[in-house]
Amino acid sequence: MADGNRSQAVAVPPARAAVVLVLTVRPGPPDPVRELLSDAAGIVRAVGFRAPGEALSCVAGIGADLWDRLYALGRPPGLHRFRKVSGDRHTAVSTPGDLAFHVRAHRMDLCFEVARRLTERLSGLADVVDEVHGFRYFDERDLLGFVDGTESPTGAEAVDTVRVTGGDPVFDGGSYLVVQKYVHDLGAWEALPVEEQERVIGRRKLSDIEIPDSEKAPDSHVALNTITDDDGNELRIVRENMPFGSVGEGVFGTYFIGYASDPAVIERMLHNMFVGDPPGNHDRILDFSTAVTGSLFFVPPAGLLQDPPPAPGRGGEP
């Protein structure tokens, strides 16, 4: 196998455009899907060569059930089906997903072309169950009007936040990806005074400055998503959320895209949001934003995709 520790392009600067595809793979031999995953980097290079400098990239993630079909390896330790989180009033649903492709660039046409080429190769093999075309909205704001991802790490810190290390060397350099589609009730949200919107989020709307802890509402989005380990160190993830919407259909939302070296960090955040910390103190943003999908994937090191280990039931290198 090739060097499996080289990471996919997870920790990159925010994009102006993105396409996220979630697919389920039909029963059948795994070879065509393995081959597509091996060739995905080449597809990105071929499309990006025509438009250099546009920061085109694609991250491929694999769900738990498909992993068992593709590779004669044990699952990465944190890989499992997305676990539904049910609170008193709101639920983080779990929806099917075998493959995820997160395509980013400064131009939507490049993202669209990569997504089209990937799905062409998977025709008859897999079905798209979710497709979102995201866009940059003004100065990195979501459709609720607040800057999104302010505390997301960047640079070397982002790499450290998402990169799996210190376990099975086969998985070192990988990452975990959680995606959720949230649909907003913009009518109800925009009926709130700005001061009340700020209380829900935990930040000032115009300046993006975090509200001091002494004034911050305990059910605010910021309060419930700030978590620490036993030593008091903040546990962080890399958020690559993108707004999406359809004016004609009246559908507006945020597509949550979270990367971490351990999915338990994201799962703890979701528990705080939906169940509450303490229980019953749910994230008030959920009164205006409903989760309609939820899937978990492992993002393998680039070398594992391009030079994969044997498929189940086979010996030796493929």
Rank of each mutant, 00 (worst) to 15 (best):
A2M: 08
A9F: 03
A11M: 07
A15W: 05
R16E: 14
T24E: 15
V33M: 08
A41Q: 06
I43L: 10
R45P: 10
G48P: 11
G48L: 04
G48W: 05
F49P: 06
R50L: 13
P52D: 08
A55W: 13
S57K: 07
A64G: 11
D68T: 00
S86V: 04
G87V: 13
A92V: 12
V93D: 01
S94Q: 09
P96W: 04
P96D: 03
P96G: 02
H102P: 02
V103N: 05
R104K: 06
M108G: 02
F112Y: 13
R117D: 02
T119L: 09
E120Y: 08
V129F: 15
E140V: 15
R141G: 05
L144C: 04
T154L: 04
G155K: 09
E157D: 13
D160I: 11
V162L: 15
V162E: 15
V164A: 14
G166F: 14
G167F: 06
P169W: 00
P169L: 00
L177D: 09
L177T: 11
A188P: 01
E190A: 03
V194M: 12
E195G: 03
E198Y: 14
I201G: 00
S207F: 01
P212F: 06
D213V: 14
D213Y: 09
E215R: 01
V222D: 00
A223T: 03
I227S: 03
T228G: 09
N233M: 12
N241Y: 06
G250Y: 14
V251G: 09
I257A: 02
D262Q: 03
A264D: 11
F274C: 06
P279Y: 14
G280I: 15
L286N: 00
F288Q: 00
A291R: 10
G316A: 04
